[in-house]
Amino acid sequence: MSSLVVSIALFCIGLYAVLTRKEVIAILVGVEVMIAGALLVLVMLGSHAANGASIHAVALLILVLAATEAAVGLGLLVAAARRLSTTCVDEMTEVRG
């Protein structure tokens, strides 16, 4: 039960960071915290289920997806910072780079 509270709290703190931060890098880090919280909810519920190995495998696949997301996101961040010379989401107003 307490682990459920902790994992949901982690998710919500990440959500707050995503909503309040203006820098792309901070938003990406907030998304990572959200994913950590969500994964923790899955694993926590999975550790109570009978088919633990299936949950384990699904969690591993989610880990891979999250890592991919982070890599592509950071690549886009660096490319955007080079071309638009800003890392603030509010200043990225041009569609053409």
Binding site: M1, G46, H48
Partner: peptide, 10 residues
């Protein structure tokens, strides 16, 4: 969370 029994990740 309250319904389920405890086991592990296999």
């Amino acid at each position: 969370a309250l319904q389920l029994q405890t086991s592990s990740g296999g």
